[in-house]
Design a protein around this nucleic acid. Sequence first.
DNA 1: GTCTATACTGAGATAGAC
DNA 2: GTCTATCTCAGTATAGAC
Lengths: 198, 198
Amino acid sequence: MIGTKQKILDTAERLFALQGYAATSMRQIISEAGVNLAAIHYHFGSKEELLDEVVLRKAGPVNAERLARLEAAVADGQTPQVGEILEAFLRPMAASASQNEQFVRFMGRVYAEGLLPHVVEKHFQPALARFRDGLRQALPELPEQEFLWRIHFMMGALAHTMCGAPESLQLLGVSAGFQDRIDRLKRFLSAGFRAEGE
Amino acid sequence: MIGTKQKILDTAERLFALQGYAATSMRQIISEAGVNLAAIHYHFGSKEELLDEVVLRKAGPVNAERLARLEAAVADGQTPQVGEILEAFLRPMAASASQNEQFVRFMGRVYAEGLLPHVVEKHFQPALARFRDGLRQALPELPEQEFLWRIHFMMGALAHTMCGAPESLQLLGVSAGFQDRIDRLKRFLSAGFRAEGE
DNA sequence: GTCTATACTGAGATAGAC
DNA sequence: GTCTATCTCAGTATAGAC
């Protein structure tokens, strides 16, 4: 028998991915999950904390995979290549998208919205910080401010790229998949990061 | 004597910029504007349409300036440079930011959020379409899908760059201004667009 | 410890009097 | 054009049953 908490998490994940966070009411979640309204507050405390746990379940494995790949890219002793580091950071997301594309889009939106800053801070920043250090090794000569801004540009492009459904982008055909998007994004970002600074 | 509609527009602009769209209630707007709640519905129809008019007032001049610069860059007969086209698109925003930095941040958020798609579509897409054509002339050899995705990456980086307050980015010092941001973004995007395709 | 029923506050929207 | 009153629905909080 599946517990109340699990039912809420599963239903919330599905509805958030389909409709977005704001557009999904707690009453819709509990109705489709077949539980009582107060159960959300009992198990999670608030709607925002429910989102927090939903994101954690999905983002946790992605971030773990990112860190594992990053370790491998950095630890071989040599100066890592920009493309290698980007690959370590971007590819796990494409893998996750092949399981649940809708939810990856949702996570892109969570990041891009900048609302729920606590959720973003908690689930995205730690892995990003490690990644930033790795990328710094690959770009030792870039001035610090320029480097930090480029990280910021990258995150904007990444979040926006995750969000979009191909239909809405008028980008159709075989190139619509996440693997393909990540390939294109990597080419774009690699060149941007390696541009002359200041 | 300033009319009710103007008072609502001015107050809404200020509060949206300060607090965001969702966090600003219609009751707060009418309270600070000194008008009645129903006046918003009478003059605008809904909260979303009020946002629409607030955005139009600010984005209209920026887009006009963009188009004027784009014409100048494209119409001199020669193949335009990527950097020129980007300059025409990005610089007017920095100029607008020097007047009202808070509201430019808010517009970045409106775009990034992807909520209010109708507002985004209406006020950002037309100028973007013209700009895309101009950039296409500067990059005639890039495969179409690659080109369109790079436009998408650019818009993500741009929106995210506009949103952020320097404090929250840990990017302090002289480099925090919008002119400087745009310079850095232009370097980054120029290199990205000119990278080898596919 | 878990869950249900119900009430509270504040949001956007609307009808109709003036 | 403007304002009052009211409607519906959101997230939240609590008392109490099992």
